[in-house]
């Protein structure tokens, strides 16, 4: 399995796409941090600027934006890695070497997961570096402790990262399932992008209508992801980010444990579809 995983990673790391996709994410993170600090905090003395850029308050903002952009970027990457195997005909070559179809998809998912984890840590690391720079510029200590006392522990930070990473999973798996079912990169990319846009509109409308109708938002991925990320607050301060989505008050959101469960069910559903279809499919030239 190790050699199969190594082969998967070799296929990915020698493509330009992962590196190119990382650039805009890092760029937006840098913009959020530096603009937040210099334009909003230093210039306007607006605390939103401080919280979005200076450690440790900036951690939720960094994670929120990384999750939002990371989910889209990962969906594009996953769809490409899965769909091109059909386009190049390499999926047939892979399956005549003695690995089962289940093993093939599992190895691919594992490769993607390793890649996603490395990408996530790299982007977040750079985001923290940007934040550390402005924290130093603001003459504040580089610490997780808040001036008022308290602050997240390293364990809390790890949990915050897990929440953000988990929030990317359903989009990644949606792209995976769509690419497998449609045998194409395009369907995976377009499907996720359309879903994200349509979901944001529908959630907004449901929230606007209010009452029992608004409760239907709990069935949508995005609403549950927000519920998870809201639990990332540092020192009870609301976080801000450039992620293009509605962040309703915590009282409007499901419990993070329920949100995690709903997201998990979506993930299982996407996995089940991908494996079920692939297992039964004729693979023609």
């Amino acid at each position: 399995m190790v050699s199969v995983l190594a082969a998967e990673l070799l296929k990915v790391r020698s493509r330009w796409m992962p590196y190119v996709l990382l650039l805009p994410v890092v760029g937006v993170l840098a913009f959020q941090t530096f603009f937040g600090y210099f334009a909003v905090w230093r210039h306007d003395r607006d605390f939103e600027g401080l919280y979005v850029s200076v450690l440790p308050w900036s951690l939720p903002s960094l994670l929120d934006l990384t999750q939002f952009l990371g989910a889209i970027v990962l969906a594009v990457l996953v769809a490409s890695l899965t769909g091109t195997e059909y386009g190049w005909g390499t999926v047939r070559q892979a399956l005549i070497r003695g690995q089962t179809r289940r093993q093939y998809l599992s190895a691919k998912l594992l490769g993607i997961a390793v890649l996603a984890a490395v990408g996530f840590l790299l982007v977040l690391g750079l985001g923290i570096l940007f934040s550390a720079i402005v924290t130093a510029v603001d003459d504040r200590p580089l610490t997780l402790d808040l001036p008022s006392g308290g602050g997240p522990s390293p364990g809390d930070v790890a949990l915050m990262m897990l929440r953000a990473g988990y929030g990317m999973l359903p989009y990644m798996l949606m792209a995976f399932a769509l690419s497998v079912v449609g045998r194409s990169t395009t369907l995976g990319v377009a499907g996720v992008l359309v879903y994200v846009i349509v979901e944001a509109i529908v959630i907004g409308i449901l929230g606007g209508v209010g009452g029992a109708t608004a409760d239907a938002r709990i069935y949508f991925i995005g609403h549950n992801v927000v519920a998870l990320l809201v639990a990332n607050q540092v020192g009870g301060v609301d976080y801000f980010s450039l992620a293009l989505r509605d962040n309703p008050p915590a009282s409007d959101l499901p419990d993070p444990a329920v949100a995690a469960l709903v997201i998990g069910l979506y993930c299982l559903g996407f996995l089940a579809i991908a494996f079920w279809v692939f297992q039964r499919r004729d693979l023609h030239a």
Binding site: V4, A7, K11, R92, A94, Q99
Partner: peptide
């Protein structure tokens, strides 16, 4: 199989390495 299929961005040897692993 009909029509050779490979990863175009990898070298011939790396392609064999991928298939060899499988």
């Amino acid at each position: 199989l009909e029509g050779p299929s490979f990863y175009p961005h990898l070298s011939g040897r790396d392609n064999l390495g991928v298939w060899g692993a499988l």
